[in-house]
């Protein structure tokens, strides 16, 4: 899949010394991360730790204040408009809120990236859109608008739109936010399944721990704008680092804390 002019050793996507500020507020500080080709990398972290910002920097939507994102060894910041367009054709982004265009039908939403950003002939576009809708079981809903669909269907439609361009990288921003546990499982199954089927590289941002650990090949933990853990899911489960432990074991702490509250003991300071 790699283009001939790049060394095969260069990782598909790499982050080097990335910093991002909003005003005086530092969101990301000196991040380094390698996204291995063909794998599913999960970035874990509490809400508001800058996971989405990191993902948007990876997609080239946000421009980092320092450092760079490298695609096949070439920094995105030095790409000209055609270079950036070429990168975007090979990369898809699944937004937390799906970001479907509400003025277009399901069919038109899926066809949009092909019609607007590629030069494919019309029959080919039609075949690909039909195929993408069929794979995500949305064939019967092609003429419906996103507002007429349930949350799960919208998520599937957004995934269909992300996959219809046959991307090499798909970035998932909290694909399971606001879903019940059964649908959460279904979404991760869908991601893992389509990743196997299409062979793309996936970066998933989430805070759903058990599902993420089960589905991913590598895990990174983002705390307060820095990555404090990078490794395999098994290493994450065994890690003794306090930050990892705090995130990993919060569920098991819960029982103890509830019991303490029921006994009438004071609420721990970090929760109050």
């Amino acid at each position: 899949m790699s283009s001939p002019d790049t060394p095969p050793s260069a990782p598909l996507l790499e982050v080097r010394g990335l910093c991002k500020n909003f005003g005086d507020h530092t969101v990301l500080h000196d991040l380094n991360l390698v996204v291995p080709r063909g794998r599913l990398l999960t970035i874990l972290g509490k809400s508001g730790t800058g996971k989405s910002v990191l993902l948007k920097c990876l997609a080239g939507v946000l421009v980092p204040d320092a450092g760079d994102v490298l695609f096949e060894g070439r920094p995105l910041s030095s790409e000209d408009a055609p270079g950036l367009a070429a990168f975007r054709r090979r990369c898809s982004y699944l937004f937390q809120g799906n970001a479907l265009l509400d003025s277009l039908t399901a069919w038109d939403n899926v066809a949009l990236p092909l019609e607007q950003a590629t030069l494919l002939p019309k029959p080919e576009i039609r075949a690909r859109v039909r195929d993408a809708l069929r794979r995500l079981e949305l064939e019967a809903d092609a003429d419906r608008y996103p507002s007429q669909m349930s949350g799960g269907m919208q998520k599937r439609l957004a995934l269909a739109r992300a996959l219809v361009t046959r991307p090499e990288i798909v970035l998932f921003d909290e694909p399971t936010a606001g879903l019940d546990p059964i649908r959460r499982n279904a979404v991760f199954t869908m991601i893992a399944h389509s990743q196997r089927e299409f062979g793309f590289t996936a970066v998933v941002v989430t805070h759903d721990l058990p599902e993420a650990l089960a589905a991913s090949d590598r895990v990174a933990l983002l705390v307060d704008g820095t990555l404090c853990f990078k490794g395999a899911p098994a290493e994450f489960q065994d890690s003794a680092s306090p930050a990892v432990a705090a995130f990993r074991d919060s569920a098991s702490h819960l029982a103890g804390q509830i019991a303490a509250i029921r006994r009438g003991e004071p609420v721990p300071a970090d929760l109050a």
Partner: peptide, 8 residues
Amino acid sequence: MNASPTKY
């Protein structure tokens, strides 16, 4: 199946 042509 295709975006209904009559609408446009």
